[in-house]
Amino acid sequence: MIRAATRIAGMILTLVVSSFVIFAAMYAAPGDPVTFLIGNPENMTPERVAEVKAQYNLDQPLIVQYGLWASQAFVGNLGTSFQYHQPVAELMATRLPATLALVAMASVLFIVAGVGLGILSALRQGKRTDSTITAATTLAASVPSFVIGLLLVSIFSVQLGWFPVSGAGEGFLDRLHHLALPAVALAVGAVAIVSRVTRQSMVEQLSMDHVEAARSFGLAPAKLIRRHVLRNAWGPILTMVALVVASMLAGTVVVESVFGISGVGKLLVDAINTHDFPVVQAVLLYMVITYMVVTTLVDLIHPLLDPRIKAKDKKS
């Protein structure tokens, strides 16, 4: 209980500081914030200046500005895009489904492939399969995701014509079809990390006495792996999977650009290119919050998998 409370308090503190960094960053820009927020000098009209001043309360002290911005963000008001003249929350809402679908698909892929290869690697420890898997996944992780994405497009979309070149698709099946290659591109790098952690965690468990004890009384290999090895190896694997999924929300920035998917990542890139700072702030804030919440949740759920930690926690 106390542990959970400290963890959540820590998360909130970090969130406050990082959101402040996101907000106050505009003051670090050269020139005054009004000029910076307007971006293109051609747009320097009186209406625009008024709009900016109203949105950011620039006549107030910095800490008050931040307080107003943060409390507005807290109730879902993320300001108005200077580019689209549309509430940022609305913009994000229309972009979010594609991004979430992409992350979900990539997650399924990298979890299945990563955990699967990790298990295989651990069971064939020290053999050829093991070193091949390690070498292949490490190699794949050394290719930047945008290169992988473009090669996939070139082979499977352009040459073979199996998949569309770009876009996110409409409806369930069409979306699956459109997002298949982007999901692969997003997942490849993560496979190495997850398979490595899975392997390591399983190898550790395989050497435990209780595994041999179970083998000594004739427990079938498949059950042995499931009941004694995998069950006990889950902790680190789950933590890593969650971390990777959470950071994938940031990884979509690149993949969405490669495949021309209008998701949140593409929105961020476009916003930077058009100096649409409210959108930049909102997207960053959303990504940081998601990341923090997921990692904290994992930290809180992790002990529930292990009765030993649960007991210690109760005592403390």
């Binding site: 435990m208 006495d209 209780h210 179970a214 009941r227 069950r231 998998l305 292990d306 030993r308």
Partner: peptide
């Protein structure tokens, strides 16, 4: 202690 699965 090692011969019994700690999670079961």
């Amino acid at each position: 202690r090692a011969a019994l699965n700690p999670l079961r």
